[in-house]
Amino acid sequence: MRKRLLGVAAAATVVTGMCAPAALAAVPVGDQDTNFVRSAHQGNLAEIAAGQDAQKSAMTPCVKAVGARLVTDHQKLDRDLKALAVKSKTVLPAAPTVEQQQALRGVTEKAGTAGYDAAWLKNQEAAHTQTLALIDTQIRSGTDAAVTNAAKKARPVVALHLDMVRGGTCHTM
């Protein structure tokens, strides 16, 4: 397990270019805060991938537009998380969770069919509902002010995304 974690850490460092300067002192971050940063990063990676897929595979202009919005917004949110990770020397995962990858595969299998958009919207509603719960837990229980502030900043963005896909109906805002 330790070898796997070291491999993931090395890959994350190479992939994200997150080598912290030697002069940067470690900032202690609690387990809740570290878990939030890692989980939110994986959520961002999943949303970016889903948004990119929607831009090329969606059948309706609305889903394509919402997909583009997700990419833009989650890239920005992830830049902020990466900065926090560097400051706290938190190693970020290099990919979405296995479950997130499987969910996206389930949607992408429907590419080019009428069922793609409905599957994508349903997946995004579930993902953004989970992300809001993660954010709310951080806001309630986080101990690192910078991480909790990032969660507070992300909350309205994620809530807007949820509103855009709620009920399996696409809404551009």
Rank of each mutant, 00 (worst) to 15 (best):
D31C: 01
R69E: 13
L6E: 14
A151R: 02
L77R: 06
A65M: 05
C170N: 06
E109K: 14
P21Q: 13
R155A: 09
V29D: 04
A150W: 03
D163L: 09
L104D: 12
E99N: 09
R105K: 14
L121Q: 07
K122Q: 12
K122E: 08
Q130T: 03
D33E: 03
A146T: 08
E47W: 11
A151C: 02
V165A: 00
L70S: 07
H74V: 08
T113W: 06
L45Q: 12
T172Y: 13
V14Q: 08
V158S: 01
A85R: 02
M173C: 07
A49F: 05
L81Y: 09
A40L: 07
L162S: 02
R105S: 14
T60S: 12
V66Y: 04
C170Q: 00
M18Y: 04
K153E: 13
A94H: 11
G7S: 11
A151T: 00
A159R: 12
S57C: 14
A25K: 15
T108Q: 09
D78G: 09
V29F: 04
A150R: 01
A25T: 14
Q52M: 15
H128L: 01
E99C: 04
V37F: 05
G67L: 13
D80Q: 15
A151D: 02
L24H: 03
L104Y: 12
